Simulated assay, not measured.
Amino acid sequence: MFRSRTKEGQVSTPVDAEPTQPRDPEAPKGRPTPKRNEAQPQRRSLTKAPANRKDAARRQKEARRTALAKQREALASGDERYLPVRDKGPVRRFARDFVDSRWTVAELFLPIAVVILVLSMMPSMQLKNISLLLWLFVIVLIVIDSVGIAIRLKRRLREKYPDEPKRGAVAYALMRTLQLRRMRLPKPQVARGERP
């Protein structure tokens, strides 16, 4: 009823059909055969659909929990396979290593900000003026340091990864400079002074 009709006398044959040769039974398949006790539960879990919405939601929640656990471990160890999308790729890894291999003024911002805050709360007007000047000085230093890092990082990325997309890598690196080294995620993989 729904078959395509060919002109009378013509037989429809596939044009590009190549005769398939059976696989040589002696040829290796490239992986070991799983044991039955491993294969059966895996097959059951893949084929068995959830009975109701509650089961489906529970499975989804468990899957999300395991994915987040893997992601946390990857952020601590630097394992590229499970990193979030924003941290994946050779360009982002190089940007992280570039920042982690040097001291930056921006990473000292929080400790300096605490000192400035304490100085600004003192009753002496001289100390308040010093804290304002210190704010200005720190901000100018951070801007100069950040511009220098951005220029050097762009140049190194162009040399090392000419064909890779580099969009957002410099901003990613500059945001990383604002964090204290031990608080950075993914954890630093290079020592200070080491050339990435």
Results as ranks from 00 to 15, higher is better:
4 S>W: 08
5 R>C: 15
8 E>M: 14
10 Q>P: 05
11 V>M: 10
11 V>P: 01
14 P>N: 06
14 P>C: 08
23 R>C: 04
23 R>S: 05
25 P>A: 01
25 P>H: 03
26 E>N: 07
27 A>H: 05
27 A>E: 13
28 P>H: 04
28 P>V: 01
30 G>S: 09
30 G>Q: 06
31 R>F: 11
34 P>V: 05
34 P>R: 13
37 N>I: 15
38 E>Y: 13
39 A>Y: 09
46 L>N: 12
46 L>W: 03
53 R>F: 09
54 K>I: 06
54 K>F: 14
55 D>E: 08
57 A>H: 06
62 E>I: 05
64 R>I: 03
65 R>I: 01
68 L>K: 06
71 Q>C: 03
72 R>A: 02
74 A>C: 01
75 L>F: 08
78 G>W: 03
79 D>W: 10
80 E>G: 01
80 E>T: 02
83 L>P: 00
85 V>N: 11
85 V>D: 08
87 D>P: 07
87 D>T: 12
91 V>F: 04
91 V>M: 05
92 R>Y: 10
92 R>W: 05
93 R>P: 07
99 V>Y: 04
100 D>Q: 08
101 S>G: 12
104 T>R: 10
105 V>M: 05
105 V>K: 07
106 A>L: 03
106 A>D: 05
106 A>S: 07
107 E>S: 11
108 L>F: 10
111 P>A: 07
111 P>E: 07
113 A>W: 15
113 A>R: 09
114 V>W: 11
117 L>K: 10
117 L>E: 06
118 V>I: 13
124 S>G: 03
127 L>K: 00
127 L>D: 00
127 L>R: 01
128 K>H: 07
131 S>G: 06
138 V>S: 02
139 I>M: 01
140 V>G: 04
141 L>A: 09
141 L>G: 01
143 V>I: 09
144 I>N: 12
144 I>F: 05
144 I>V: 14
146 S>D: 09
148 G>P: 00
149 I>Q: 00
149 I>W: 01
149 I>V: 14
151 I>V: 11
153 L>T: 02
154 K>P: 00
156 R>E: 14
156 R>K: 07
156 R>P: 04
162 P>L: 05
163 D>V: 13
163 D>A: 13
164 E>S: 12
167 R>M: 02
171 A>W: 14
172 Y>W: 12
173 A>G: 06
174 L>I: 10
174 L>Q: 04
175 M>W: 13
175 M>V: 08
181 R>I: 15
183 M>C: 14
184 R>K: 08
184 R>A: 13
188 P>I: 10
190 V>T: 10
192 R>S: 06
